[in-house]
Computed example of a mutant assay.
Amino acid sequence: MVRRRGIYEVNVIGKPLVCLFCQDTKFRHREVYVKLTNHEPGVQKKKLTLQSFSCVACAHEMKFEEQKSDGLSTIEYVQVGE
């Protein structure tokens, strides 16, 4: 798990991320790494990276898998505080 310092405003697929509970738009960010295990012999484990955002106001946590295509990401974040 990697935690980025700071407070961020986040866009997911071009739309601002808003907390479902308190409607705040500022989040703390961390990356969560998950190893997916397939129980079939000879199949390698896959690694899934989730972007986890925790609301600064109420601590509600949301996770998204980041998708990239043509060098563009589905998740954009801008640091707005420390």
Rank of each mutant, 00 (worst) to 15 (best):
M1I: 13
V2C: 05
R3L: 09
R3I: 13
R4F: 13
G6H: 07
Y8G: 08
E9L: 09
N11I: 11
N11M: 15
V12Q: 06
I13P: 00
I13R: 12
I13C: 02
K15P: 00
P16H: 06
L17W: 11
L17T: 02
L17Y: 09
L17M: 10
L17Q: 05
V18Q: 06
C19K: 05
L20H: 06
L20C: 03
F21H: 11
C22G: 00
Q23N: 07
Q23K: 13
Q23P: 00
D24H: 10
D24L: 03
T25I: 15
T25M: 09
K26G: 01
F27W: 06
F27C: 05
F27E: 04
R28G: 04
H29R: 07
H29A: 09
H29N: 05
H29T: 03
H29K: 08
R30D: 10
E31M: 13
V32K: 12
V32M: 14
V32E: 15
Y33S: 08
Y33D: 10
V34S: 02
V34I: 15
K35L: 13
K35E: 14
T37I: 14
T37K: 15
T37W: 08
T37N: 08
T37H: 12
T37S: 08
N38D: 08
N38E: 06
H39W: 11
E40A: 13
P41R: 12
P41C: 04
G42D: 06
V43T: 07
V43D: 01
V43P: 01
Q44W: 07
Q44P: 07
Q44T: 08
K46C: 02
K47L: 15
K47E: 15
K47H: 10
T49A: 12
T49D: 11
T49Q: 11
T49Y: 09
L50I: 13
L50S: 04
Q51R: 07
Q51N: 14
F53N: 04
S54Y: 05
C55H: 02
C55E: 02
C58G: 01
C58P: 02
A59H: 12
A59M: 09
H60V: 11
H60I: 09
E61Q: 09
M62F: 06
M62C: 01
K63A: 14
F64A: 02
E65V: 08
Q67P: 00
Q67M: 14
Q67H: 11
Q67A: 09
S69H: 08
S69K: 09
S69G: 01
S69E: 12
D70S: 04
D70P: 00
D70E: 14
L72G: 00
L72R: 06
S73I: 15
I75A: 07
I75Q: 06
E76L: 15
E76C: 05
Y77C: 01
Y77G: 00
Y77W: 11
Q79E: 08
Q79K: 15
Q79C: 09
V80P: 01
V80Y: 04
V80C: 03
V80N: 02
G81I: 05
E82T: 03
